[in-house]
């Protein structure tokens, strides 16, 4: 039941475990009914549900600007984008349920327990430009991560990522195009988008998680081919992709140490402020309390709707000829 509460599982059958790890090594896909070590199940449940929660909490910062979008095309793009994120959340919750924990319990774990969601959504969206920058940087970072996860050993997760990446790519292009439009707009618009980049750049780099040396779950996840690349590798890839994009639209990234390493072709960047990262993870970011409060409010205020739907279904199910 409660995946978090289970003790470490030291007593896996060594034969089965060896067989499982051999399958992972051969790049085979693990499916819901296949045998898997308890720790694999637990790690994936943690990772996938965290991903699903992130999609849903991620609806809040962008949803904050739906009612103020400056024209109808942008308004529709934004509604559609936030709607897509809800769809991703739903899809990944369904994928997580194949590991044996149902959605209601997973939701309880983040609303009232210790389950996490991506720390990036604990930052506020302060101007319209944030909508563009989130699409460009936050979705851009997510894509780098999810492109890797599309090769994850667990089938339902990998398949979800393939589909989700397609939509995220579209969001990223839309966000980048929004930023480009502002960057070539009025001086006020240009200042707005530069300010948004300044605020979102470092949190976007933090999305890849701690340094490899500090990442508690990484070793298992890499061994079991859930992850194929380390946090630092992915972060570097994101920086390499993003620097030329910023240059192309005349925006600067707020890092004086950013410079091209001619030998490797990597854009070297300054040190992340890990104290900020840790503070946000610990629940003390600018918007942690508000995000959880908003999700709890929606969940609690919607309880009567869910109860009524269940009561109606129970009342009408037995009656012959009622089923659609």
């Amino acid at each position: 039941m409660a995946t978090e509460a289970k003790p470490a599982a030291p007593t896996e059958d060594p034969v089965k475990l060896a067989e499982f790890e051999a399958r992972c090594d051969r790049g085979e896909t693990i499916e819901p009914k296949d045998w898997m070590p308890e720790k694999y199940r637990r790690q994936l449940t943690r990772m996938m549900s965290q991903h699903a929660h992130s999609e849903v909490v991620g609806m809040l910062p962008e949803g904050n600007w739906i009612t103020r979008a400056p024209n109808l095309r942008r308004k529709m793009c934004l509604i559609a984008k936030v709607q897509d994120e809800g769809g991703h959340g739903l899809y990944i919750y369904c994928g997580t349920e194949t590991l044996g924990t149902d959605r209601a319990e997973l939701i309880d774990q983040y609303l009232y327990g210790t389950a996490k969601y991506s720390s990036i959504f604990n930052y506020p969206t302060l101007t319209w430009a944030d909508i563009g920058v989130i699409g460009w940087l936050v979705d851009g970072a997510a894509i780098v991560n999810q492109t890797m996860l599309a090769h994850a050993s667990y089938g339902p997760y990998a398949r979800a990522m393939i589909r989700i990446c397609k939509e995220e790519n579209f969001h990223k292009r839309q966000g980048y195009e929004l930023c480009a439009t502002l960057a070539r707009g009025t001086p006020a618009q240009k200042a707005m988008v530069q300010d948004a980049v300044n605020r979102w750049w470092w949190p976007s780099l933090m999305m890849f998680g701690p340094h490899d040396t500090n990442s508690p779950h990484s070793a298992d996840l890499l061994r079991w081919k859930v992850k194929q690349k380390s946090n630092d590798d992915l972060r570097q890839r994101f920086v390499n992709l993003t620097v030329p994009q910023a240059q192309a639209i005349g925006l600067t990234l707020p890092d004086p140490d950013l410079k091209l390493d001619q030998a490797t072709g990597d854009w070297k960047f300054g040190e992340i402020d890990w104290s900020e990262f840790n503070a946000v993870i610990a629940g003390n970011g600018p918007m942690n309390r508000e995000r959880i409060a908003a999700r709890r409010k929606a969940h609690e205020e919607g309880a009567w709707v869910r109860e009524a739907a269940a009561a109606y279904a129970a009342k009408h199910q037995p009656a012959a000829g009622q089923a659609a």
């Binding site: 809040l60 509604i79 709607q83 809800g86 919607g302 709707v305 739907a309």
Partner: peptide, 17 residues
């Protein structure tokens, strides 16, 4: 559109949006 992110169940966030 004000319901986006605040619906009673995820399916309805999507439907109302």
């Amino acid at each position: 559109a004000e319901w986006c992110g605040h619906g009673p169940i995820l399916e309805e966030d999507i439907a109302v949006a």
